[in-house]
């Protein structure tokens, strides 16, 4: 017999309300960012925004291409630096490391992941910036490269932990098959394990790219913040996120400038959502392959 007042159903209904919160917040974010950004396109065309390279709010010029290029350069630089190191460390943890080494390296990586981005920024502001200045003998170390280096450090934990997971999920059988043919550890690692873990590793790299594109604090402190198209890694620049951070304070609410800054946020937002979907797709596909 069903009771009129069923406690279980009441709790279930309450929890359902809780559980749609994440979806509601996500939709609200989209709504508010679009609402804040889209009015820009009444004044500036989409192509002028994406492709234009003049950003002069006072004159109504909102070409964001230099921010986009800087963000992409910084991200690719970071990936280039951190992927070889990250995969190596993941292989080390999954295959080579004796117990005592794992007990040191793993907590170190967790800690690396837990350090706030602003602290990385302050560290990079002095150490990495001077390192770049001295090494490459440039006028200022506040460059795209400096931002890439600090981002590379920040995304290492993501790359390592996801790569390690996917290497460890490669069936033992493959490994044994390779050893039984007289392969060395290294041959087994680079010819069988890493290729078999490939899709999982790529998923980790994509996730890390998303993190790098969206990062603000560590970048803004070291990239120089010059609103000009960067010509190379040793140029200063300004990324999408740092532009938002630096200009929001001076933008009049609901002005075109304000709208344009929301559009700057829209770019990494869309990219990152896309990457996160792609990455989780790859992960599920990878798991299914070995099931």
């Amino acid at each position: 017999m069903k009771k009129l007042f069923d406690q279980e159903r009441v709790v279930g209904a309450a929890l359902m309300v809780f559980s749609i919160t994440a979806l509601v917040i996500l939709l609200l974010i989209m709504l508010f960012i679009l609402d804040g950004g889209l009015p820009l396109f009444n004044k500036v065309s989409v192509s002028d925004f994406l492709l234009g390279d003049k950003w002069v709010p006072a004159k109504g010029l909102f070409g964001a291409s230099q921010f986009i290029v800087a963000a992409l350069l910084v991200t690719f630089g970071a990936i280039l630096l951190s992927v070889p190191l990250g995969i190596s460390c993941a292989v080390f943890l999954a295959e080579i490391a004796p117990g005592w080494a794992k007990r040191i390296v793993r907590p170190a990586i967790e800690l690396l992941a837990g350090i706030p981005s602003i602290i990385y920024g302050v560290f990079a502001l002095i150490i990495i910036v001077s390192l770049v200045r001295v090494t490459f003998n440039v006028a200022t170390g506040e460059t795209i490269l400096a931002a890439s280096i600090v981002l590379a450090i920040m995304i290492l934990p993501i790359i390592i932990s996801i790569s390690q997971d996917s290497i460890e999920s490669v069936p033992r059988l493959y490994k044994e098959g390779s050893y039984a043919l007289g392969a060395t550890d290294w041959q087994t690692i680079h010819r069988v394990l890493v290729p078999a873990a490939g899709p999982g590793i790529v998923a980790g790299i994509i996730l890390a790219m998303g993190r790098a594109i969206g990062e603000t604090m560590a970048v803004v402190l070291v990239i120089g913040n010059v609103e000009k198209m960067p010509a190379g890694l040793l140029d200063p620049g300004e990324t999408l996120t740092s532009a938002i951070l630096l200009e929001m304070g001076e933008a009049v609410v609901k002005s075109t400038h304000y709208n344009a800054l929301f559009c700057l946020g829209l770019v990494p937002f869309i990219l990152v959502l896309f990457m996160s979907v792609l990455s989780s797709r790859l992960t599920t596909k990878n798991k299914a392959r070995f099931a």
Partner: peptide
């Protein structure tokens, strides 16, 4: 939601 860049949360 986890992937949303922190500056977008700021906006």
């Amino acid at each position: 939601l986890n992937a949303v860049p922190s500056i977008v949360f700021g906006l």
